[in-house]
Simulated scan of single mutants.
Amino acid sequence: MGTAHPPWDVVVLGAGAAGLYAGIEAARRGRRCLVIDGARKPGEKIRISGGGRCNVTNLNVARATIPERFLSRNPRFALSALSRHTARDFLARFEAAGLSWTEKALGQLFCATFARDVVAWLVRDLAAAGATLRLGTVVHGVEGAGPFTVRTDGGDMAAARVIVATGGLSIPKMGATDIGYRIARAHGVPLTDTRPALVPLTFAGAPLEEMAALAGTAVEGAVACGRARFRDGLLFTHRGLSGPSVLQASSYWREGEAVAIDLAAGAEVGASLAAERRRAGRVAPATALARLVPERVARAAVARAGLRGTLADQGNAALARLNAAVHDWQVVPQGTEGYRTAEVTLGGVDTDALDPRTMEARAVPGLHFVGEVVDVTGWLGGYNFQWAWSSGWVAGQSV
């Protein structure tokens, strides 16, 4: 296969959030820019995100919160990019394009219309900036050290600089591959271990039997894993647990560790049941508890706590067991649902090998890594999209 002539100033690998944003920025600076992707459509993960509405950013991506809310071997690495192109900077561009947003809980901002409108905006801006978008082109590798040769199934492409925005391993049905990691290895850029993140937890044995019997039931819950605790919705499934609080905790969970489940976050179960015992002791514990949680959840918790009879029959120790069954259910997950349903990939290109001001590999001038392929993973709720915008902008500014 021959090499394309003349060479591109910049070739961006990946037409997702980070890749499109990087391509726009590079092209606006007068660079001859090509963005390529193996998918037939650009921005597929944008399109399916947020239930088709796309959680574009989060207002709480502030300098003080970044090290806490972005997981990485070096949590402070993300500070540079996220501080230079902030959520407000992104929103200024978003609004200038005629798009509007709605705010949900915890600072989460969603596109007011549809996620496909976000994709259309990015593709439109890419074209307006003068960049070329080439889809259905599978990347096989990158060779050389500036200029680079990008090997694809559509021929070789020469590039002075390459931005790798190929994402991680999550949601393989959307075309996710390990090509970004293979490119890094081929150039001696180290990687950290990768694993599914923001993913439902699976269980086995007695916990699974109880969870499966409650499948489809949701509560306002909280999940704690080590020192990390997240309060939000919790959903029982046929395989275990899902919902925002579970997805958040999954990024911190490791095999063999227990998680603590609170099935009634914000409620005072022990005090409420003690008061009910004094007022109307002949009521069944499950009936009283069902005023605080769904009835099926109440019955399952009472059975797990081993209570029999009425509230009047329960001593303080029995009520303490029921309180713990609701507020501190200690269970050990069997695993996760894996990359099939994981929203992101934890780990990736080691940040120690990258310049945070440019996202360029320190040992390979001209080779940049942005977005999910890098060992930076944000919390649920728009943090990962903001990392894509910010890291893509930084790379586009530096090529």
Rank of each mutant, 00 (worst) to 15 (best):
M1L: 13
M1E: 14
P7V: 15
V10N: 01
V11A: 08
A18E: 02
A22G: 04
E25K: 15
A26N: 10
A27W: 04
R28V: 14
R28K: 14
V35L: 10
R40M: 11
K41L: 12
K45S: 11
I46M: 09
I46R: 02
I46Q: 04
I48Y: 08
S49G: 12
G51F: 06
V56S: 05
T57E: 05
N58I: 05
V61I: 15
V61A: 04
A64V: 14
T65A: 12
P75M: 12
P75G: 10
F77V: 03
A78K: 00
A81Y: 01
A81Q: 02
L91H: 08
A92R: 15
F94N: 03
F94G: 01
A96W: 07
A97C: 08
A97T: 06
G98C: 13
W101C: 09
T102G: 14
K104E: 14
A105E: 15
G107S: 05
L109Q: 00
F114V: 08
A115D: 02
V118P: 01
R124T: 13
A127S: 14
G130C: 08
A131I: 02
L133I: 12
L135Q: 14
T137S: 10
T137N: 11
V139W: 00
V139Y: 00
T149C: 09
A165C: 10
G167M: 01
L169Q: 04
M174E: 11
M174L: 10
G175W: 04
A176P: 03
A176Y: 01
T177E: 00
R185W: 06
A186N: 07
H187Q: 09
G188A: 09
L191D: 07
D193M: 08
T194Y: 07
R195K: 11
L198A: 07
A212R: 11
A215H: 04
T217D: 00
A222V: 07
G233Q: 11
G233R: 09
L234K: 00
R239D: 07
P244V: 13
L247N: 02
R254V: 09
A265S: 15
S272V: 02
S272E: 07
A275F: 09
R279Q: 11
P285Q: 13
A288Y: 04
L289M: 13
L292P: 06
L292W: 10
R299K: 14
A301S: 13
V302E: 02
A305I: 09
L307H: 06
D313I: 07
Q314S: 13
G315W: 10
A317S: 13
V331K: 11
Q334Y: 09
E337S: 14
R340M: 12
V344R: 00
R357W: 05
M359N: 04
E360Y: 01
E360S: 04
R362G: 02
G366Q: 01
V370N: 02
V373L: 06
L380Y: 05
G392D: 09
G396Y: 03
S398E: 07
